[in-house]
Design a protein around this nucleic acid. Structure first.
Lengths: 359, 359
DNA sequence: CTGAAAGCGCTTACAG
DNA sequence: CTGAAAGCGCTTACAG
């Protein structure tokens, strides 16, 4: 009647218009091979003339699954997750599927409820960014349909995981700082809730160790859940006698806190590398050096896998590890003041990569 | 069996377990009044014992609608829209509904396809941020179910609209700049595709007019669709003989381009006000003054309306206009250099609000 | 307050 | 290559 897609048209209307049975219409809709071309064409014409769109619910009722995938993330406002949802949506729409979003707020109960709601809705597949190390909720991940986990390890076995090499990338970042002469590097991370932070700390320690530097517990914080926490933790750290000359923010969530502190206190001499690119990172003073984990690539890889499984779920589960890249923008390439270098406990090895940039 | 929500349990299983008919179970699920408390309780127990979750598809098939709302936005990565989707999700989940997301990319064809897909999926309501002035696609907005439009006017009548006073807020921003002595203020906006930009320009012109200043076409650009465009447009503008002393970026999308240019060129003397807050706006040098349009409040107001309509769609459609606020952070409070002030064609009126801040 | 019947719009075996 | 029947799991009138 209006421009709205015709609502009341059913498969019966099409069958009548085309002079065939509803089964034949069904075959045409589903692209069955065994339909006479002429028949298929007249059915197709009827479908278009009547603007027929198969009822998703009825379809679902028989199949048990909808042409819908569920995407479960921490927070939809977080640029990292927003990018993932965006890619999931465009990829899904491209193959005629819809995306149902669910935010957990990293709350176990909410995650459980969201998961069961999505399953109940008959999603054909799930893209999940789990939180928590061995959080029991992920043991409840449905096994009867395609699932792809992203970004973080959850302790669940036998399910695809698409992620980056957190340890290796962090190690690279720290080696980068060391190559510029830094020996006192602060590590700021979130609470132990995430495997990623654990691995990033491991990379940090490995880089120090490889350079013959011993870690200073006073420079390591794993209590920064957000920007404010980072600001609170870093403030006394910078005022301490053995202050860091560089900061490694192991997640972009806390980056604003660090940048804010450095800007406000006028400490433009503190080097900074952030794990994860963030909007406006190039507009800070100096521009912020980051490890780009390429959320878009992660999401595409995850959707490749998920859509492949929607077609055929008999694939062996595997871990897909994607590369990251260090983007030097300035803040991570600041050399420490001479005094700090002299005070250092050990000399960093020479010849580290990126060392050509060392003063 | 596992932690997964029980999949195969139907209303029949519950009815058998509780020793009642499926109709009674249905009544309990739907909270019908006329069920004997004792019966209701035993049914409830059976539901819990069996972890029964009604099949959404079957329910939908009868009702014609699912407990799902569709959210249609330009881009899911845009912080403004991400916030809207996030609020929609949390509000929906709170009342047991799900959210289906759809990005249009401000493409008419895609928008049409998305709309019809959502309708076909049986969404119980739609939250839409339309684009384009009088784009025909919005005439196709379904009228048979609740719809709430957000942020931009689409030329569609008889549908709720939740937005801010773009003209008034822009006028305030320009008056703010004028109160600091600015007379040459650049206006950067997107192409005519959006009612919001049109209204923001109107506010800009109104403020100039009220101050007895005549607009300079050379300072007005409506071709900035993104940050790069803004950079390209503003660069020659700043080099021109009659360069602006202040810039009004009428959308946060182009803000990074402006900030980037001002930072790179070292023009920290150019005042800047952006319509719409953006991440890290407080970390630029100087911190960026913005008009906060409070996307979260907008989304909540829209969801209030949409959920009210899902309960009862017999409400008269209306426009809901929410307040904005100017957040002075520094960049908008820079006074123009004396030379520029002297060159000005007219003196701004004195006594404008905020004028106490004028040097 | 409770139940037996019909049917929502499809698809899945089963026949022809 | 095509069709008549059954049924997916619910809810909506209609009886009692």
């Amino acid at each position: 009647m209006s421009g709205t897609a015709t609502a009341g048209t059913t498969i019966y209307d099409v069958a009548r218009a085309a002079g065939v049975s509803i089964k034949t219409v069904s075959r045409v809709i589903n692209g069955a091979k065994n339909v006479r071309p002429a028949t298929a064409e007249s059915v197709q014409n009827a479908i278009e003339a009547l603007e027929y769109r198969p009822n998703a619910a009825a379809r679902n009722l028989k199949a048990g699954l909808t042409d819908t995938i569920g995407v479960v993330v921490d927070r939809l406002q977080d640029p990292f997750f927003a990018e993932i949802v965006s890619v999931a949506e465009s990829r899904a729409v491209a193959v005629g599927m819809d995306v149902l979003v669910a935010a957990t707020g990293t709350d176990t109960h909410r995650a459980r409820a969201q998961l069961s709601r999505l399953v109940n809705r008959g999603v054909a597949g799930l893209l999940i960014t789990p939180f928590g190390v061995d959080d029991p909720v992920w043991q409840g991940i449905p096994r009867d349909r395609p699932v792809v986990l992203m970004d973080r390890r959850s302790g669940v076995e036998g399910v695809d995981l698409v992620c980056v090499d957190d340890e290796g990338a962090s190690r690279t970042a720290i080696e980068h700082l060391i190559s510029y002469g830094h020996q006192r590097i602060a590590f700021l991370g979130e609470p132990a809730k995430y495997s990623t932070v654990h691995n990033r700390l491991a990379g940090y320690l490995a880089a120090l160790d490889a350079a013959g530097l011993s870690p200073d517990p006073a420079l390591i914080s794993r209590t920064c859940a957000n920007a404010d926490d980072a600001l609170a933790v870093l403030t006394p750290m910078l005022d301490a006698r053995r202050a860091p000359t560089a900061v490694f923010a192991s997640t972009p969530l806390i980056a604003p806190g660090v940048v804010r502190l450095l800007m406000r206190s006028g400490r433009r001499d503190i080097a900074l590398v952030v794990f994860g690119d963030f909007p406006m990172a190039d507009l800070t003073t100096p521009p912020t050096t980051v490890i780009d984990q390429c959320p878009s690539s992660l999401a595409h890889a995850a959707m490749d896998r998920l859509l492949a499984r929607v077609s055929d779920n008999d694939i062996v589960a595997s871990d897909i590890v994607l590369p990251t890249r260090l983007i030097p923008r300035g803040s991570g390439e600041l050399a420490p003041p001479r005094a700090a270098r002299v005070r250092g406990r050990a000399q960093p090895r020479t010849g580290t990569r990126e060392s050509s940039g060392t003063k």
